[in-house]
Write a protein that binds this DNA or RNA. Structure first.
Length: 486
RNA sequence: GGUACUCUGGCAGAACGGUUAUGCGUGAGCCUGCAAAGCUUAUACAAGGGGGUUCGACUCCCUCGGGUACCUCCA
């Protein structure tokens, strides 16, 4: 599998000959997660699911930044402790992402639980003379790392002309960044340099190396983390260890809202809670995977509606295949000759089904292999769905037995989930559908029976079941609560 | 201002130095008791502008322009 590496600006092969080690920069837990977080994390979720589906072992670490000025500010304004704030939003995180069918990663380390590792890391930096202590804290000396700027393609002298850098007389160079901030205000920890808390970037260096080693496979996050966060991580880590940090830097594009940047000041932040309530997890996942991960994607009601249409097609095809064996065989008495020709026909049809399955299965895999092109992978999946819907007559039990495993595999990789079919309820549902269809055929002579048929449909609705009358059969589906709002 | 990314048909969005991407939408038709859906078919000579390289460019190079992101809050 190849992935676009930000550092080399080229596609790099992921080494799958051994366990693949992935580190994803997670969220700062001071507020609700939004659709932008969802996209990044869903992309990585599909990456891991694809690798795992291919029998590749992974170790996947995603941190929580639970010490940060924003958390402290929020705690102060709400008269709570920083820990109360971070705990609340970590819980909130899991509610959101479990709801999006994101599989939990190997470990979710927190900065506050790794203070000792961080202090040890800083000590090494000081010993190597790339960091220095002042009366405000400990700073990494950017000038000591000659490759500084290699990830974000920035030049040090150009950065220095930037005016947004806080002036701090204690720093040797305005570009130097804090690895330890001295402060007696809670939350605070003892350190060789005095009480204080870690800087933003150091936790990721310390924790990724602790869990994944000095050199691991994939390090990622949103594009906005390239500078300064990941640039600084590289500087610290490579200065400390002397070896290459991550092999591949994978960055996911931003989500804009109706063409505008999502920001609190504009007031257009879409929380995951909000979008989940209105669209459910599957449509959001389809949306997040509809474009290439490295490019920006624009969130709008129109685009979500398109995914809803696709999702309904997927559901219909899936439920139909799942229910094939429940449909009444309509063959009456047949001569042997007829039966034989039927069988021949079936063999040809199965051959056709298998060809489609193999072809689209290969397309699906090669799309993901090539820099995780989820757009093309989805297309392969949709082609199977369309084939099923367009060839209702060919969807025999045998055909379903060939198609369903592949369909389920793709859905598993993409993280699309339909409710399990309740085998007890199914008998009742099938009886109702059978009865309704009897009324419907009777109604061809006496229209009064339509009322009875409709009553049954209402009853099914009450059981949270919707029906779709196809040419030869009625397919039922669990209803989904989609409000179709932005 | 700097850096990076990006600019493909009404919209979304891929691939590829030479062949119709595809999907959504739209039109027509089919199916249909009604619903909802589904099916078939038609439909776009598309590549930001201008140069260049090439037998041939959407694809490579230059230039001009638009957009987005980042430039110590950020997924």
């Amino acid at each position: 599998m190849k992935l676009l590496d930000t550092l080399s600006k080229a596609e790099q092969e992921v080494d799958v000959s051994k366990k693949v080690k992935i580190y994803l920069c997670g969220v700062t837990v001071y507020d609700e997660s939004h659709i932008g977080h969802a996209r990044t994390i869903i992309v990585f979720d599909v990456l891991r699911k694809y690798l795992e589906d291919n029998g590749i072992e992974i170790e996947f670490i995603q941190n929580f930044t639970d010490v940060d000025d924003k958390i402290i500010n929020k705690a102060n304004s709400e008269n709570k402790t920083a820990e109360e704030i971070s705990t609340k939003y970590i819980e909130n995180y899991f509610t959101d992402f479990d709801g999006l069918n994101v599989k939990r990663v190997t470990n979710y380390p927190k900065a506050t639980e790794h203070i000792e590792d961080i202090i040890e890391f800083i000590e090494k930096l000081i010993v190597k003379d790339v960091a220095y202590a002042t009366k405000n804290g400990v700073y990494f000396s950017v000038s000591k790392f000659s490759e500084y700027g290699k990830l974000s393609k920035k030049k040090i002298d150009e950065l220095q002309s930037g005016s947004r850098i806080e002036i701090d007389e204690q720093k040797k160079d305005p570009l130097d960044f804090a690895v330890w901030k001295l402060s007696d205000m809670e939350p605070t920890w003892e350190s060789p340099w005095g009480n204080g808390r870690p800087g933003w970037h150091i936790e990721c260096s310390a924790m990724s190396i602790k869990y994944l080693g000095e050199n691991f496979d994939i390090h990622g996050g949103g594009r906005d983390l390239i500078f300064p966060h990941h640039e600084n991580e590289i500087a610290q880590s490579e200065s400390c260890t002397g070896v290459q940090f991550a092999k591949i830097w994978m960055h996911v594009g931003m989500v804009t809202i109706d063409g505008e940047k999502m920001s609190k000041s504009i007031g257009n932040v879409k929380s995951i809670k909000h979008v989940l309530e209105n669209w459910g997890p599957n449509i959001i996942r389809l949306f997040c995977l509809s474009g290439h991960y490295s490019k920006p994607i624009d969130y709008s009601e129109e685009l979500l509606m398109r995914e809803l249409v696709k999702w309904n097609q997927i559901r219909l095809a899936y439920y139909e295949l799942m229910q094939i064996r429940d449909f009444e065989p309509e063959n009456g008495p047949e001569s042997d000759k007829q039966r034989q020709s039927e069988e021949e026909k079936e063999t040809i049809e199965i051959k056709e089904v298998n060809e489609i399955i193999i072809k689209e299965g290969e397309n699906f895999d090669s799309a993901l292999e090539q820099n995780m092109n989820t757009h093309l992978a989805l297309q392969a999946f949709y082609n199977i769905v369309s084939f099923c819907l367009a060839n209702e007559n060919k969807m025999t039990e045998e055909a379903a037995a060939h198609i369903l495993p592949e369909m389920k595999r793709m859905m598993k990789v993409l993280g699309l989930v339909l409710p399990e079919i309740d085998s007890e309820k199914i008998i009742e549902i099938n009886q109702l559908i059978k009865l309704r269809n009897e009324y419907r055929s009777k109604a061809k002579e006496n229209k009064n029976y339509y009322k009875d048929a409709d009553n049954i449909r209402d009853k099914l609705n009450g059981l949270n079941i919707e029906t779709s009358d196809r040419v030869t059969k009625t397919v039922w589906m669990y209803k989904e609560n989609i409000k179709q709002k932005n």
